[in-house]
Write a protein that binds this DNA or RNA. Structure first.
Lengths: 122, 122
DNA sequence: TAACTGTATTACACACCATAGTACGCATTG
DNA sequence: CAATGCGTACTATGGTGTGTAATACAGTTA
């Protein structure tokens, strides 16, 4: 379920955070579905339980999941609009930078088409 | 000439690196023009000279500037194509994320148009 | 010569990341 | 009730990256 890159500069807890966020937003993990326990995920990924706990706590702090001591952790009810807005904000920033670098609007639109022509490449 | 955010998570040397890169690419700092010395920039920004030196060494390593012991550091002859490619790569990544979040190709193209309609807003 | 330049070195402090081990309270299951 | 699994909390340790501090050296320039 999770692949961790130990050589990456990105902290492990952040990799876990991103993975679960992606799965939750995309709907792969449906609302209120239970996540693997801190200990089981730690065992599977061969990572320290503290590291997984840190990821879960960060996910809860940002409202992606909710945790119940004694029961487990579950996917929260997500407002996908917020994540869409954030993605669009990043997109705008990238487009502005490309513009500064001398890339034309047409080229950027072609890139958009190129990305959307491809299938579900995740 | 440089403003440093000491509270930022981005390392100081990386902030200096980014600033100078931006100035060099935009042409604000023309080719072969001399940069402030390590010590003077360190004094102006109230940063340790070693930190500035680290930024300059990274800039030289990536071909943005060249340094001559005893003389100073200067803006290199830049191949703008490299930076255009990098900007496009970032743009693609942002577009893919937006796609994952459920944003349509048309909306993204509208955003591109919106950015290019505006004047030189830097 | 004097004052500048980039560069190199050593040392220290601090924060972040990750691991290890232990412990507590709560919920579920047998 | 007892056992197990759950999230959570805590201390301790080590590694790495960042930033500062203080020198020192060789090359360039006025």
């Amino acid at each position: 379920m999770f692949s961790i890159d130990l050589t990456s500069r990105v902290p492990i807890y952040e990799q876990i955070y991103s993975k679960i966020t992606e799965l939750a937003i995309s709907g792969t993990l449906s609302e209120n579905s239970q996540l693997p326990s801190v200990r089981s995920l730690a065992k599977d990924t061969r990572v320290n339980p503290n590291t997984v706990a840190k990821a879960y706590q960060e996910l809860e702090r940002r409202g992606i999941i909710y945790s119940v001591p004694g029961r487990g952790s579950f996917v929260a009810a997500l407002d996908s609009g917020i994540f869409r807005e954030a993605a669009l904000s990043d997109f705008d920033a990238a487009a502005k930078t490309a513009k500064k670098r001398g890339v034309s609007a047409d080229v950027l639109k072609q890139h958009v088409d190129g990305i959307f022509e491809k299938g579900e490449e995740i």
